[in-house]
Design a protein around this nucleic acid. Structure first.
Lengths: 210, 210
DNA sequence: CGCAGTTGTTCACAGTGTAAACATTTTTGT
DNA sequence: ACAAAAATGTTTACACTGTGAACAACTGCG
C-alpha cells in the first residue's frame, strides 16, 4: 500500500524533507513521543541510519517537526485573524485580533492535538520564537502574532504601556493552559460544549483583565 | 554505593512501595519519560519482571507515580493556603485562598518540574480528580482545593453563581499554562524575576477577571 | 505436613537509538 | 577527462527498553 516501496536510484533525492514529512505524520497521531526515527525511515523506504545524514539524532528530527508544527499553528491562527472585520475602530480590531489568536491557538490544539503537542511541548528557548522556520505561510510565528496584537492594543490605548509589557506571557499562558488540560490533562473528556464555554469565558477574562 | 545491593530474604517485603519510591525519584529528575521500569527495579535490587507482580505494566507504575505527585502538589498548595490570614472578612480570605492555590501550583512546578509534569501531563480523567490516592497529607486533591476556594468566593459574593460555574477550568488553565510554558515550553530561560512578575500579574488578572 | 498461592528469577524476543565500517553516487580540482 | 574527495545510503553491531512464558523459592493454610 506504500506509494513507492522501492526506488530505482541509490540516492533518494530529498530524503530530509521526506523524513520530515513522515515525522509530521507520526506526530499528527501520537504527538512528539510517536516521532520515532526508525519508523520514519521505514515509511520513506530507507535504512534506519540514513536519517543520520540529515539529522544529528532523533532530537534533531523532532525539533524540525516541532518547528513545522509551530508554523501550522501560526497558519491556523491567521485564519481566525483574517476573520476579524477591519471596518471598525482600532481598539475593536485589536481586541478582535487578540481573541483570534486565542481561538486559533485552542482550535489548533483541539483539531490537531498531536501536532500541537509536538509544537509546544518540545522545549525551545524564547530566543528562537521568531526564527523563520517556525513561521506559517504568512511568515509570522505564533509568538509574533501574540506580540503583534498586544502592540495593537497598546497603540489603541486599550492597555497601558505598563500592562502591555510582557503581556505576551499572560495571554499565552492562559490559552496554552486550557489547551494542554483539554488535550492532555485532566480536562480531557469534557464535552465540546463545555470546552467551548470554558474557551469563551477564558478569552473574556483575558479581554477584561489583561 | 547502593545502600543494600543484595537482600537476604527471597521476598522483598514491600516491593510495590519501593518501586513507587524509585519511580518518584526518577520522575523528580526527568519527568514522566524518565520513569522506566527496568531502572526502577535495578535501583530496588530486583529483577526487571518482578515489577509485573505489582504493576500491570509501565503505564500502571507511571499512573501510581502521577497520583503521588498530585498529592505532593496538593501539599505544596496547602502550605500557601495556610499562610492566608484568617482574621479578615470572608471575601478577602476567599480571594487569598484562590491566590494561594495559584502560587502553590506554580511554586510546585518551578521547584519540582519533573514531579509536576509527572503529576499533570499524564492523561487522567476529571472523574478521578477527587480520588483519595491523589490527595495530599490534608486529604484534599489539587482539584478539590481549586473547587473549594471557588465555593468560598461564591459564598462571599465575590463571584456570581453564574461565573462560579465551571470556574475551576478557568483558574486552573491560567496557572497551568504559565507553569507548563515556564518549565517545559518556550518560556523556559526567563529569569526568575520575569517569572515572578508574570505570576503576579497572571493572578491579578484571574482575581479581577474570573 | 503437603499443597496452593504469591512473589521473584531466568530466558527470550521484538523494538528503539545510534556508532562504525562499508558501498555507491555525485562533485570537484587539475 | 578523470582521479580524488565529498556526500549519501547500507550493513553490521551493540546497549537499552518493555514484556510474555516458564521456572523457582518462599508463604500461609488445610
Amino acid at each position: 500500500m506504500t506509494a513507492t516501496p522501492v526506488r530505482s536510484t541509490y540516492r533518494h533525492g530529498d530524503l530530509r524533507q521526506a523524513l520530515l514529512d513522515a515525522g509530521l505524520d507520526l506526530a499528527r497521531d501520537g504527538g512528539p513521543d510517536a516521532v520515532v526515527l526508525r519508523e520514519a525511515t521505514r515509511r520513506v523506504g530507507v535504512s534506519p541510519n540514513a536519517a543520520y545524514r540529515h539529522f544529528a539524532d532523533r532530537g534533531a528530527l523532532l525539533d524540525a517537526v516541532s518547528a513545522v508544527a509551530q508554523g501550522l499553528a501560526a497558519d491556523r491562527i491567521e485564519i481566525e485573524w483574517a476573520k476579524v472585520p477591519a471596518d471598525t475602530d482600532e481598539a475593536t480590531i485589536a481586541r478582535g485580533h487578540l481573541r483570534a489568536v486565542g481561538t486559533g491557538y485552542i482550535g489548533f490544539a483541539r483539531e490537531q492535538p498531536g501536532l500541537f503537542r509536538a509544537a509546544f511541548s518540545v522545549p525551545h528557548d524564547l530566543r528562537h520564537a521568531f526564527s523563520p522556520d517556525k513561521a506559517g505561510a504568512a511568515g509570522r510565528t505564533p509568538f509574533q502574532l501574540v506580540a503583534l496584537c498586544l502592540d495593537e492594543l497598546a497603540a489603541a490605548g486599550v492597555v497601558t504601556p505598563e500592562r502591555r509589557r510582557n503581556g505576551e506571557f499572560l495571554a499565552w499562558s492562559t490559552v496554552h493552559g486550557l489547551a494542554m488540560l483539554v488535550i492532555d490533562g485532566p480536562l480531557r473528556g469534557l464535552t465540546p460544549e463545555m470546552i467551548d464555554d470554558a474557551e469563551t469565558r477564558l478569552l473574556d477574562m483575558v479581554d477584561r483583565g489583561l
